[in-house]
Computed example of a mutant assay.
Amino acid sequence: MNALVFLDFASVFVFALTGALVASRAQLDPVGFAFVACLTAVGGGTMRDLLLGRDPVFWVAQPSYILVAVTAALLVFFTAHLFESRYRLLLWLDTVALAVAVAAGTGVALDLGHHPVIVVLMGITTGTMGGLLRDVVCNEVPLVLKQGEIYVTAAFAGASSAVIAVALGLSGLAVLALCAAVTWALRAGSLQFGWRLPVYKGRPPRG
């Protein structure tokens, strides 16, 4: 298994766990758990592959990704009640999922030889779209839209660090590891230390 396939599998599994945790908060049945987990797990990668013209989309070419997501959903269905704060667990699992997914999306775009701008955008898309779909479908406030949250910014920084590393002559696993580490450090730091970005303070619109 090469590094990009491993990252896709890891991203699918961890994002599926977060999707299932949100499903537990919504008190869904096992099929609902599986649906939300799969939507979360493959949403970002699907958007990436469609935008890059990859045919077939990664989980269509290898349905075992769906089986991994369903397994994660069932695991959470039977164990979620054991955790005192599922939302806190969700947030921390999401930091890992974001880091792995950004590295996966960035790596795919780099492997295909795309322009640095596209590489960064694919890293952001892969890392954020699954979680956005998860939160919208389950009627949660999307993490990517919460005021001042370092989320998309973390994805942007991680993908950008990979582009810079390639420009400096690095390649392979070192680039992907740097991408994931930068993304995770920023997102985790925002949770642990309360890092926030400034938000717009202008006057509200009239009418």
Score class of each variant (00 low, 15 high):
residue 29 D to F: 03
residue 29 D to S: 10
residue 31 V to W: 06
residue 32 G to K: 14
residue 33 F to E: 11
residue 33 F to G: 00
residue 34 A to I: 09
residue 35 F to R: 06
residue 36 V to R: 07
residue 37 A to S: 12
residue 40 T to N: 06
residue 40 T to S: 08
residue 41 A to M: 08
residue 48 R to V: 00
residue 48 R to G: 01
residue 49 D to E: 04
residue 50 L to V: 08
residue 51 L to A: 10
residue 52 L to V: 01
residue 53 G to V: 02
residue 54 R to D: 05
residue 54 R to C: 11
residue 57 V to L: 10
residue 57 V to K: 12
residue 57 V to R: 06
residue 57 V to Q: 07
residue 60 V to W: 13
residue 63 P to V: 02
residue 65 Y to Q: 03
residue 65 Y to F: 12
residue 66 I to Y: 00
residue 73 A to K: 11
residue 73 A to V: 04
residue 75 L to P: 07
residue 76 V to A: 07
residue 78 F to W: 14
residue 78 F to S: 13
residue 78 F to R: 12
residue 79 T to H: 08
residue 79 T to M: 07
residue 81 H to N: 14
residue 82 L to A: 15
residue 83 F to G: 05
residue 83 F to T: 03
residue 83 F to C: 05
residue 84 E to R: 15
residue 84 E to M: 15
residue 85 S to C: 11
residue 90 L to S: 05
residue 90 L to A: 04
residue 91 L to H: 04
residue 93 L to Q: 05
residue 94 D to I: 11
residue 94 D to T: 06
residue 94 D to H: 08
residue 95 T to K: 15
residue 95 T to A: 14
residue 97 A to P: 00
residue 100 V to Q: 08
residue 100 V to F: 09
residue 100 V to K: 11
residue 101 A to D: 09
residue 104 A to V: 11
residue 107 G to A: 03
residue 108 V to M: 02
residue 108 V to K: 02
residue 110 L to G: 07
residue 111 D to L: 14
residue 111 D to T: 10
residue 112 L to H: 12
residue 112 L to F: 06
residue 113 G to Y: 06
residue 114 H to N: 13
residue 115 H to Y: 15
residue 117 V to D: 10
residue 118 I to Y: 06
residue 119 V to A: 04
residue 119 V to T: 03
residue 121 L to D: 00
residue 123 G to Y: 01
residue 125 T to E: 14
residue 125 T to G: 12
residue 125 T to Y: 13
residue 126 T to S: 11
residue 128 T to C: 11
residue 129 M to A: 12
